[in-house]
């Protein structure tokens, strides 16, 4: 058997794949956080809850309406996105003039409420959601065994990340978004409906989180607490990457996911905390984050 640094190659590659998958989720979620923060100046604590809502939406759609994975992949983000837009329009938008911390506290309360409600309705235990038949099984790559669904997650989330990046950097809507980030008053003076743009952005961000949630449903179990476990790690990712750049958020997500996976190979005890340690080190060396401009 091939060994690498005294570790069997297969174990090494297996953890690398897990790291890559976790990294995909980190990237998708931190991307959504960065998009929302860029325009709304709100740190969306409810992002984890929206991720959980996505997974639940997929499961409930299947249970009650028999809607399969493929449609859920589109429908769940739309539902959660609309819900997000509603919250933004009716409640969150009242807080823009205040200190940004209030936005954080509000979305924290929102997250607690959503998670508490789902825990009350469905219990704290996880529920399974099966892999769609088309993506079931695995393939032998010769050097390792790759479950097809996991490969699919990596490819699709990469595509979603690049798609969002293109949307923001290359389209007209994206240029409005970027302009409104720089100077909302001026953009509004040019006749662009900025409040609508804010609602849309929050909706898209929430939808992205839900999309990640649907992708995650067959890998992890669908549980009310799946969001709060991941959101704190994503916060650390965002601090490391700096929220200035979309690409930075994506790259940092993948990098830290892989770092976490590799730690599991070499020093499993530290795998839970390695991302936080990296965050602390980055803060000491480069407080603005790897890709951040000074806030």
């Amino acid at each position: 058997m091939t060994m690498i640094f005294g570790i069997p190659l297969q174990a090494f590659l297996g953890q690398l794949l897990i790291g890559l998958i976790n990294g995909s989720f980190y990237a998708l979620l931190s991307l959504g956080l960065a998009v929302i923060f860029g325009l709304l100046r709100v740190i969306n604590f409810a992002h984890g809850a929206q991720y959980m809502l996505g997974a639940f939406a997929a499961m409930l759609l299947l249970q009650y309406f028999g809607i399969n994975y493929w449609f859920a992949l589109i429908l769940a983000p739309v539902i959660v996105g609309l819900f997000g837009a509603l919250i933004e329009r009716t409640l969150l938008s009242r807080l823009y003039k205040l200190d940004h911390l209030y936005g954080l506290l509000f979305t924290f309360g929102l997250a607690l409420t959503i998670e508490g409600t789902f825990r009350y309705l469905y219990g704290a235990a996880g529920q399974p959601y099966s892999v769609p038949p088309a993506l079931a099984g695995g393939t032998n790559l010769g050097f390792m065994f790759l479950p097809i669904y996991r490969g699919w997650v990596v490819v699709v989330s990469l595509a979603a990340c690049i798609g969002t990046w293109l949307l923001i950097e290359k389209t007209k809507l994206g240029s409005y978004l970027r302009a409104a980030t720089e100077n909302p008053v001026l953009v509004q003076a040019f006749g662009v409906n900025v409040p609508m743009l804010l609602t849309l952005t929050y909706g898209i961000g929430a939808g992205l989180a839900a999309f990640a949630g649907v992708l995650a449903a067959p890998i992890y179990q669908v549980s009310p607490l799946m969001g709060s476990n991941i959101i704190i790690v994503v916060f650390a990712v965002v601090v490391v990457g700096g929220m200035g750049s979309i690409m930075g958020a994506i790259l940092t997500g993948y990098m830290l996911g892989i770092a976490e996976g590799l730690t599991k190979v070499f020093y499993p005890e530290a795998s839970n905390i390695v991302i936080f340690v990296i965050m602390a080190i980055v803060l000491l060396i480069r407080p603005a984050g790897l890709f951040g401009r000074d806030a």
Binding site: R94, L105, F108, G109, A111, L112, E115, R119, Y120
Partner: peptide
């Protein structure tokens, strides 16, 4: 309790 805590949070902030 988290449901009530969450709602109180939102009401306080708003």
């Amino acid at each position: 309790v988290t449901i009530i805590t969450g709602v109180v949070f939102m009401v306080c902030v708003l």
